[in-house]
């Protein structure tokens, strides 16, 4: 691994910052929780009160990015700082794919995690940020196991499905999670067959060691969330049932007409996903007439799909 930890004096002892264990450990602490997209401190306060484990600060919600077009960049620094001062839960923010400097700035102002996100306009079509060089942990999107492992090999400390952000349509998140799960099953089945593992590694363009790790663990070596199109408590519980460690909700909350109640209900559905009675209780807290209208993905033109953006290497 390319791990770069920082050693620092603390009184008369030496402490370690930014190690892989610390970065992946941060992601472990948000498991079984909901990370909510927000665009201002007021929305962040609502998210915290609803039981969010972290908020993701954006300039515009994915649905608005989609509607407005143009270039989507990292959020205003002042807006991120104000949100950091308002809530006590962790703050995440997005940088453009491959925009190492946006990432550096987000690290500098002290966000707790960076999402190198296809929701923003990719800045480098050739490569992603080399995340081992940072002490702040990163989360990256994926559509299948290979993409997840490529990001992990670049230093990502957490993975999420890409789904299709800003659509209110969970179908793509389900597809991506299914692809990851199928990939893991295939690797686990080849566990005792080094040649087959090597072939899988070559197909996925990752190292043999990384594939072997997945075979041993029977899961990704980092926390794996669902994201992209989750709009209701039932959507969130569905993703948990597919072995996700937690969910990101983007436009689904603040593009609905009942954001406070919906935020609470989605958190409840994630906590109790394995208990249909409780998920039904959560789902009863929201009205389908107030859900974001959403977009059909099957008729969507390829160039409109955010999931296809960014270097596929």
């Amino acid at each position: 691994m390319q791990e770069r930890k920082v050693l620092k004096e603390y009184g008369d002892v030496e402490i370690t910052l930014g190690s892989t264990n610390l970065k992946r450990g941060f992601a472990k602490m948000v498991k079984h929780g909901v990370v909510m997209d927000v665009t201002n401190p007021t929305q962040a306060g609502i998210a915290e009160d609803a039981g969010a484990v972290a908020v993701m600060v954006l300039d515009k919600l994915p649905a608005d990015i989609r509607a407005r077009g143009g270039v989507a960049r990292m959020a205003t620094i002042q807006a991120i700082k104000e949100t950091m001062e308002t809530v006590s839960i962790p703050i995440m923010a997005k940088c453009r794919i491959g925009h190492t400097m946006e990432a550096r700035l987000l690290e500098e102002i002290g966000v707790d995690m960076i999402d190198e996100s296809e929701v923003l306009t990719p800045a480098n079509e050739a490569s992603h940020v080399w995340k081992w060089d940072f002490t702040v942990p990163f989360v990256n999107g994926c559509r299948d196991l290979g993409e997840a492992l490529r990001r992990i090999e670049e230093g990502s400390a957490m993975i999420r499905t890409k789904g299709e952000a800003g659509t209110g349509n969970v179908a793509e998140a389900i597809r991506h999670m299914r692809m990851v799960n199928n990939g893991i099953r295939q690797v686990v089945a080849a566990k005792d067959n080094p040649q087959e593992l090597m072939i899988l590694a070559r197909e996925m363009k990752v190292s043999y060691e990384t594939v072997l790790k997945v075979a041993e663990l029977g899961r990704l070596p980092v926390v794996n969330f669902a994201a992209g199109g989750i709009a209701t408590p039932a959507d969130a519980a569905m993703m948990m049932q597919m072995n996700c460690d937690g969910v990101f909700v983007g436009s689904g909350i603040y593009k609905s007409e009942d954001p406070e109640m919906r935020a609470e209900a989605i958190v409840m559905a994630v906590t109790h996903w394995n208990n249909p009675e409780k998920v039904a209780e959560a789902q009863s807290m929201v009205s389908e007439r107030k859900s974001m209208p959403g977009l059909d993905i099957s008729t969507m033109k390829e160039e409109k799909k955010l999931q296809l953006r960014g270097a596929n290497l």
Binding site: Y10, I15, T16, S19, L22, G25, I91, G110, V111, V136
Partner: peptide, 9 residues
């Protein structure tokens, strides 16, 4: 502090 101050010892 925040995650940037998270440490191991």
């Amino acid at each position: 502090g925040r995650q940037k101050d998270s440490f191991a010892v």
